[in-house]
């Protein structure tokens, strides 16, 4: 048998090209970029600014919760729907048998999620500051932006798992069926204390609720539960879904 040369290609170059190709592709796909960018902005402008019930706190509160809603979108859709469709086409199989390191696939989509998340955050901050009269300290703006961007990670893991299990034709509908109700029940559209007690209890199980509470802590608008609780729930979700995704990825004989 001939032995193999153990040279390796430049991993960072692969990461860079993979992320660049994927990001360019999605910016050129209006079906992805327009709803992802526009929905959180549109909802926030309606409910947070134009029809705001309490102009003193509402624009700030909803800017934060719609930012959470906004960053979950690209995470769930680029991973969940993207992978499911590529699997349906056989393109994912081709990537899988190519020497692409599996890490490149994940790194590229996480970077892409971060880029879209940052854009959504910037737009929401700008609208909040200009039209909603949102006034925050500089550290608060920065802390919020960091929480939102990093907070998209558990949803990347969830999206990846969905993408690896769902069928391509049902993936968009299924992801929407998870995304929208989960956002509402986590208090992202309306403040959580507007919801009945039982629904507030249920929200404890949902990761967007915990991400929103974590962010609302920065402006002292949260319900007052410890940071550790929110962080551990988010971490637990991330680990659980990373495990499920790894299992699905390494499963052979998948069809």
């Amino acid at each position: 048998m001939k032995s193999l040369v153990n040279d390796k290609p430049n991993l960072f170059n692969i990461f860079y090209l993979e992320a660049k190709t994927e990001t360019l592709r999605l910016f050129r796909t209006p079906g992805f970029s327009i709803p992802t960018l526009l929905f959180p902005i549109m909802f926030y402008t309606f409910f947070g600014i134009v029809f705001s019930m309490n102009p003193a706190t509402m624009p700030t509160y909803l800017m934060i919760t719609y930012a959470v809603f906004g960053v979950i979108g690209p995470a769930l859709f680029s991973f969940g729907v993207g992978i499911a469709i590529e699997r349906g086409q056989g393109w994912f199989d081709l990537k899988e048998v190519s020497p692409m390191p599996a890490s490149a696939y994940i790194v590229s989509r996480v970077s892409l999620t971060f880029i879209f998340a940052s854009l959504i955050i910037l737009l929401l901050f700008a609208i909040g500051a200009m039209f909603g009269d949102v006034r925050l300290m500089r550290w608060q703006w920065i802390a919020l932006a960091l929480i939102f961007v990093l907070g998209s990670l558990p949803f990347c893991a969830i999206g990846m798992t969905l993408g690896l299990y769902l069928k391509s034709n049902s993936a968009p509908a299924t992801v929407n069926l998870i995304y929208l109700p989960m956002g509402f029940l986590s208090g992202l559209w309306l403040p959580i204390n507007f919801l009945p007690e039982i629904m507030q209890q249920f929200a404890n199980l949902l990761p967007p609720y915990h991400l929103a509470q974590l962010a609302l802590k920065i402006t002292d608008m949260d319900l007052g539960f410890p940071v550790a609780l929110h962080v551990s729930v988010l971490a637990a979700y991330t680990l659980l879904f990373m495990f499920l995704a790894t299992k699905a990825y390494h499963k052979k004989d998948k069809q």
Binding site: T21, L24, R25, R28, T29, Q89, G90, W91, D93, L94
Partner: peptide, 8 residues
């Protein structure tokens, strides 16, 4: 393969 990523 029945389709490839459209917009690349």
């Amino acid at each position: 393969v029945s389709g490839l990523p459209d917009m690349s």
